[in-house]
Simulated assay, not measured.
Amino acid sequence: MMDVRTIKVGTHLKLQEGVIAEVIENMGDGEWLQVRCLQSPARPDEVGTVELCHAQDIFKVLNQ
């Protein structure tokens, strides 16, 4: 599991299932981020939605 405390707002992440998301808030607890979905190959209707993302769901930090 990744420690997400240092991930800044605006960072793009690659999540499970190829989802690309942008961090819009870091909760500061080392586990949770609020993200906006930018790309979702399996579920395109989720693009633009906002949800919480747990550190274990992060596959890769794309930029910071």
Rank of each mutant, 00 (worst) to 15 (best):
M1V: 09
M1G: 09
M2E: 13
D3Y: 03
D3R: 12
D3F: 09
T6G: 06
T6I: 00
T6K: 14
I7S: 00
I7K: 00
K8N: 04
K8E: 12
K8P: 02
V9R: 15
V9P: 04
T11K: 11
T11G: 05
T11E: 07
L13S: 04
L13T: 01
L13E: 00
K14P: 01
K14V: 02
K14T: 04
Q16A: 07
E17I: 00
I20G: 09
A21N: 08
E22W: 02
I24Y: 12
I24D: 08
I24N: 10
D29G: 12
D29K: 12
D29S: 13
D29A: 12
G30S: 11
G30A: 08
E31M: 06
Q34G: 01
V35T: 10
V35M: 03
R36A: 07
S40G: 03
S40C: 11
P41C: 03
P41K: 10
P41R: 04
P41I: 06
A42R: 14
R43F: 06
D45E: 14
D45I: 01
V47M: 07
T49R: 13
E51S: 15
H54D: 10
Q56P: 00
Q56M: 00
I58P: 08
I58N: 02
F59W: 03
F59V: 08
F59A: 07
K60T: 09
N63S: 12
